[in-house]
Design a binder for these strands. Structure first.
Lengths: 218, 218, 218, 218
DNA sequence: TATGAATGAGCTTTCATTCAT
DNA sequence: GATGAATGAAAGCTCATTCAT
C-alpha cells in the first residue's frame, strides 16, 4: 500500500512545517521565543508540537541541525579534488563567509550565544547528530591541511588537527565578533585612537585568513 | 566638609560591597542568579541594591567592568618598553592566558556565555566605560604592532588596527573554545578521525599565537 | 448465527483484556494513571478503549466492580447455613480481613483513596451495578444479624439494617485506617503518650469486631 | 517601639486573611482549587500568597490545621473532670457529631478524601503540627478510657490505646459514610431488601457509639 | 471496528522591580 | 538612606477525548 508511505510523507511534512515555524520564531526571538508563538506560526495546537519534538530544547537544536546541514552542503558542493590545498582552504573560507552573510541567524545559533544555558536538556540523540555534523565540517578542512602538509606546502611540524581547530576557531571568532559589532558594537570604532572605521569588517575576515594561511605555510 | 567626604566614602564602600557580593553570586549562578541572593550575600535589603545600581543588568556589567580592569592592570604591569615588539606581543599573549586561567569566571562574563540580549538593557554610561576599557586593552597590542611595523619586523602592508583586532579576536576565540570544550565538549575527540585527545588544548593557544605572529612577520 | 455469537464473545474478551490492563495500571498509578498507559498495556490504540468504555471514570469503576465481585464470591463461598449467626459474622469478618490482605489495591479503590469527585462523572448504569453489588454484600451480613436477633442471640431492640451498616462501616473504617497507617502514618506511634507500637494493627481489627459483636449481643 | 509589634500583627492578620480565603475556596473546590482563585478571594496578588506559604500543599494543610484546632477546642471546652468516664466519652462523641454537623467541610478535609495524593509535598513542620494536634485529640479519649478501666467500668483486658483507636476510627468511619451517602449515596437505600430509609443516618451514629460502649463495658 | 494524530484548556511558581514607611 | 512586602507577568507541558480515515 502506498497509503502507509503517504502517511509517513505527511508526517515528515508536518515535522518540516514545525521546523519552518520554529526557525522563523527562534530567529527573531531566540530561545526565549514562546512555544505558543511557534505553534501559532505553524498553525497547530501547542500539544501537537510535542508529538514531533520532546521539548523546546530538542526543537531548538533540531532547527540548529538544519543550519549545520546547509553549511555542510555548501562545503560538499565546494569540494573539488582538483584544487590545491591552499585553494581548497580558501574556498572553505569563502563558503563560510557566504554562509555568514546569507544565513546569519543560523550562524548565531551555531555560535551559541545561548547554548550553554540550553544544552543540558537536549536529548542525547540530537547531540550525537550535532556532533557528527560538526565532525563532518571539520574533516573537510582537516583533509585539506593534511594534504598541504603532505605536499610540502604547509609546515611539517604542524599537527593537522590542531591546525584545523585553530583555523576554524579563529575564523569563527572573527565572524562572531563582526556579527556582534555590526548589531551591537561593544568597542565603538571612534573610541580607538585611530578611527576603527578604517577597519573594514569584511576585510578583517580576509586578513585573518591570510595571516593564518601564511602562518601555516612552509 | 570632611563629613560630606566621609559620606561619599561610605557610599563607595557600600557600592563595592554590593559588587563583591554580586561577583560571588554571578560567578556561581551566572546572570540567572537571583537578586535576592546577591542582596543576602551583601547583607542588604533588595531595595537597597537599587539605590546603587539601576538594574540587574547594570550590576552585572559593573562586575564585568571590574574584570576588565584586572586584565588591564595585568597588561600595564607587563608593559615594558625595553622589550621588542614581538616580545611584547608574546607577553600580552601570556598575560591573557594567565587571566584565562586565573580569572575564568571573568573571562566568561567578558566572552558572554551570557545572553547577548542582556546588553540591550544596560545603561549607556556603563557601556561607554566598557568600551573605554576595551579600547585601553587593544591599544597596548596596537602599539606593539605599530612599533613592529615601524621597525620593519612586521609586514608593512598591514593596517595595525586590523591586525590588532584579528590577533585579539582569534586568541579570544581559541580561549572561548577551550573553555567551552573543557566544560561541555561539543565535538568530542573520538568523533574526529584521529583522536582529538592528541589536541592538547593548552598547546592550541600557543600554536594559534605562533601562527598569527608568523603571519604578521615581514 | 453462531458467527454473531462469536463476534459477541470476541467483544467480551476484548473488554476483559482492557479491564485486565486497566487493573494493572490503576493499581500501580491510581486514578492518575494515563489512559495511554492502559492502552499500551492492552496493546490497543487509545481510541479503541472508548469503543468499550465511555470515559476513564467508567473504566475505573468497572475495574472496581470486578473487585467487588471478588469479595462477593468470597462471601458466597463462606456462606454456610449450618453455622450459628455469630459464627457467620465472624466468618464474614475473617473473609473481609483476607480480602484486605490479599486484594489491597481493590480494597483501596473501594474505599476511595481516590478523589470522590471521580464519582460525579460515572455513568448511572455503572453506579447502579455498583449499588447492586454492595447490597449483595451487606445482605449476607444483614441476614446473619436478623437470624441472630430472631434466635435471641442479639438484642431485639436493634434494627438489623442499622446494625449491619454500623458493623460494616466500622470494620471498613478500621481497615482503612490500618492501610493508611501502614503506608503513611499520620499519627506516628511515638507521639502518643504510650508508644503506639503497642497497638498491633492486626489486633486492632479483631478487637474492633469483638467490641461490636459484644455490643450486639443480647 | 510598638511599631515592630504592629508590623507583626499586620503580618499575622494577612496570614489569617489568606487562610480565610483559602478555606472558602478549598471548601468549594477541594484541593483542585486554583491558586489564582484563592489570591483573588484574598484580594492579593498570587505572588503574595507565596510570601506566607511555601506551596499550595502547605496552604491546604494549614487550613486543615485550623479545622483540627476547632475540634480540639470543642473537646477542651467539653472536658470536665466531674463527669464519669462514660459520660466523658459520650460528651466527646456528641462533640464530634456537632463538629461533623457544623464544620462539615473541615471534617472532609480531615478525613482525607484527598490527602494521600497531596501529603507527599507538605513541609515536615506542618506535618509535625498536624501530628501533635491529632495526638491531642486522641489523648482526651484515651484518658477517659484509661479512667474507665481503672474505675472498673470498662473491661480490664483492654489496651486503652487500642480501644481509643477503635472507638475513634469506627465513629469516624460512620461519619464518613454518612457524609458520603448524604451527598452522593453509593448504596441507595431502596436497593436493600428492606428500605434503608428506615436507617436514620443520625441514629446510626448513636447506635454505633452505643454498640462500642457496650462492647467496652465490663 | 480500530486507529492514533490532533486538540487546547489548565496551572503553579519565580523574581525583578517598586514604593510606602 | 534603607527596608522588604507586594506585585503580576510569564510559560512549558500533559492528557482525556475526538474524529477523519
Amino acid at each position: 500500500m502506498g497509503s502507509q508511505e503517504r502517511i509517513k510523507r505527511v508526517k515528515e511534512q508536518r515535522r518540516a512545517d514545525i521546523l519552518d515555524a520554529a526557525e522563523k520564531v527562534f530567529f527573531s526571538r531566540g530561545f526565549d521565543a514562546k512555544l505558543s508563538d511557534i505553534a501559532e506560526q505553524a498553525e497547530l495546537a501547542k500539544g501537537t508540537i510535542y508529538l514531533y519534538f520532546n521539548s523546546k530544547e530538542d526543537l531548538y537544536f533540531s532547527v540548529l541541525l538544519r543550519g549545520l546541514d546547509i553549511l555542510a552542503e555548501m562545503f560538499e558542493k565546494a569540494f573539488d579534488t582538483t584544487l590545491s590545498p591552499v585553494e581548497q582552504l580558501r574556498t572553505y573560507s569563502t563558503e563560510y563567509a557566504s554562509y555568514f552573510r546569507e544565513h546569519r541567524p543560523f550562524f548565531r545559533m551555531l555560535y551559541r550565544y545561548e547554548h550553554p544555558r540550553i544544552r543540558t536538556q537536549v536529548s542525547p540523540a540530537i547531540l550525537h547528530q550535532l556532533s557528527r555534523r560538526s565532525k563532518g565540517l571539520l574533516t573537510f578542512v582537516a583533509n585539506a591541511i593534511k594534504r598541504g602538509i603532505h605536499e610540502g606546502l604547509f609546515r611539517s611540524d604542524l599537527d593537522p588537527l590542531q591546525a584545523t581547530v585553530v583555523l576554524w576557531t579563529s575564523l569563527s571568532g572573527i565572524l562572531r565578533e563582526i556579527d556582534l559589532n555590526e548589531n551591537d558594537p561593544l568597542w565603538s570604532p571612534s573610541d580607538l585612537q585611530a578611527p576603527l572605521s578604517s577597519v573594514n569588517l569584511e576585510e578583517l575576515y580576509n586578513l585573518s585568513f591570510d595571516l593564518l594561511l601564511r602562518g601555516l605555510s612552509a
